[in-house]
Design a protein around this nucleic acid. Structure first.
Lengths: 241, 241
DNA sequence: CGCGCTCTTGAGGAGTTTCAAGAAATGTGG
DNA sequence: CCACATTTCTTGAAACTCCTCAAGAGCGCG
C-alpha cells in the first residue's frame, strides 16, 4: 500500500476512487488527484447492515461519510420515545453536519449500506483549501433544506392517503428502477419506518397502502416490492397539482 | 452621495453600515470595508408592511436581502390552497436561496419589516472572492436546516397542545423581550399564521392557547401580547424532555 | 355607533389512533 | 424440506383528537 501512494503521479486519481460509484455525484468530485490521495489515505470503506446505527443523537461527530450504496435514515426522538424521521439520504449523498460537534439526530442504515468514511478535521481542512468543495457541501445542505421543507408541507397539511402516496412517489423517483420498462422497486423502509417518516402509525400506513392498491394506483408483492403503473396517477394521489 | 463614495478611505466601513442593526449578526460582517462599499452602492433599504409579499412561489429570484428588523415567513402552498409555513426568519437573518433562480416558496412580511436588498449576482461574486462569506451563507443554510428538522418532529409527532407550546417557546427565545425582567412579547403571527405554521386550524390554535392560559402556563393580553412566567413549564408543555 | 376583522367558543362529525386479533412472510432447527 | 417460532404486515372495532360548521365576543376604525 505504502509504495502505491509513493509512486503515484499527481495527475492520476487513486485506483479505489476511480472505480468508486460515488465519485462524480459525491463530494469528492471537486478534489484534485493529490487531495484525493490524501483523503483516500485516511478514509475507510465500511459495510453497514440494515438497522445498524451510524451515529446516535447527542454523540460526538468525528467523521463524515459518502454513501456509496443503500439508504440512510436520519431521525429524531422525543424523551417519551416518539420518533420522527427527518431525512433520507441516498447514494451518493454526503453524510455529516459541518461546523457542529454534537449530532442532533440519529443516523441509521435503512437498508444494507456501504459508506466511505473520513475524519471531520480532514474534510474541513480540504474545504478551506478548496472553495469548490465548500460550495459542494453548501449545495448539499441546500438540497436537504429544500427536501425538509417539502416534507414539512406533507407532514403539516396532507392527509394520510396523500402522505403515503407522496412517500411512494419520492421513493419511485429516487431509487433506480430495477427494470427499465416499468417503475418497480423494493421499498427501502419498513412500514414502521414509513410511519415514522410520515408522522402516522403503522396501521394507518398499511391501510392507505391497501387503499392505493385497491384503487389500482400501485401493485404490491411480498410487502416490500412495489410497482407504479402510472407515476402521474400516484403524483395526483399525493396531492401535487 | 457620489462624493461620499469617492472620499472614503478603504479602511472605513460605509456610514450606513456602521449604524446598521444587522451589521455584525448578518452576512455583511465578513466583508472588507471595500467590499461593503461596493455592496452598499448596489443595495437599497426597504420597509415592508405586515402582510406584503416579498417574493412569490415560482417567481424569479434576482435579489437577496438582510432582514434588519421584523419577521419574515416562508410558506408553501398546494394547488387547492392548503398552506404550510416552512420557515420564520428573524433579524439579522439573510434571506434568499443561493444557486437557485426560481423560488420554491413565498416570502411574506409577518410584521412590519425593514430589509436591505442587493442583487443576487453581486452577492455571488463576493462569495466567490470571500471564502468567509461563502461559509457564513453555508452556516445560515445549516441553521435553517436544523430548524426545519426540529419542526418536522413537531409537525409529525406532537399533539396540538405541544405544537402550540413549542411555537410559543420558539418565539419567546427568538424575540428580544421588551422587558428585561419577565419573558413578555408580542406575537409576530396571527392565529391564522400560527395555524399554518403548526399544521392546525385557527380554532384548534385558539383552543390550545386558551387551555395554556387557563393552566397558568402563559398570560395573554389583547390577543397578541403574551407573557411566559416560567419558560421551563412552557418547555415541558411543548414536550421537550 | 355600526362595520369589518380577528379571535373565541360550542356541537357534531371525519379521520386517525389505539387496542386486539389474525394473516402473511421470514427465519430456525430437526 | 417441513413444522414451528418470530417478525412484519393487515384488518376490524372502538375511542379520541382535531376539524368543520356555526355563532358570538372583542377590538380597531371610519
Amino acid at each position: 500500500m505504502e509504495s502505491h501512494y509513493k509512486n503515484h503521479q499527481s495527475s492520476e486519481v487513486p485506483a479505489v476512487c476511480r472505480v468508486c460509484e460515488a465519485r462524480h455525484g459525491g463530494v469528492c468530485g471537486t478534489l484534485t488527484p493529490a487531495q484525493l490521495f490524501e483523503l483516500n489515505r485516511h478514509s475507510t470503506r465500511r459495510k453497514i447492515d440494515a438497522g445498524n446505527e451510524l451515529i446516535g443523537q447527542g454523540e460526538l461527530v468525528s467523521h463524515y461519510s459518502n454513501i456509496l450504496s443503500g439508504v440512510i435514515k436520519l431521525s429524531k426522538m422525543m424523551a417519551d420515545g416518539r420518533q420522527q424521521i427527518v431525512g433520507l439520504q441516498f447514494a451518493p449523498d454526503f453524510l455529516g453536519r459541518p461546523f457542529l460537534c454534537e449530532s442532533t439526530m440519529t443516523a441509521e442504515a435503512a437498508t444494507d449500506t456501504e459508506i466511505c468514511t473520513f475524519p471531520k478535521s480532514l474534510i474541513e481542512r480540504l474545504a478551506n483549501e478548496t472553495p469548490d468543495l465548500e460550495r459542494r457541501l453548501h449545495a448539499q445542505s441546500l438540497k436537504e433544506l429544500d427536501e425538509a421543507r417539502e416534507w414539512m408541507l406533507t407532514l403539516g397539511r396532507k392527509t394520510a392517503q396523500e402522505k403515503v402516496a407522496s412517500f411512494l412517489h419520492m421513493i419511485a423517483t429516487h431509487i433506480d428502477p430495477e427494470n427499465g420498462e416499468q417503475n418497480t422497486f423494493d421499498l427501502p423502509l419498513s412500514r414502521a419506518d414509513i410511519a415514522d417518516f410520515l408522522g402516522l402509525t403503522i396501521e394507518t400506513v398499511s391501510r392507505q397502502m391497501t387503499k392505493l392498491r385497491k384503487d389500482g394506483v400501485i401493485r404490491i408483492e411480498n410487502n416490500r416490492h412495489v410497482t407504479v403503473p402510472c407515476l402521474e396517477r400516484l403524483n395526483a394521489a399525493a396531492g401535487n397539482d
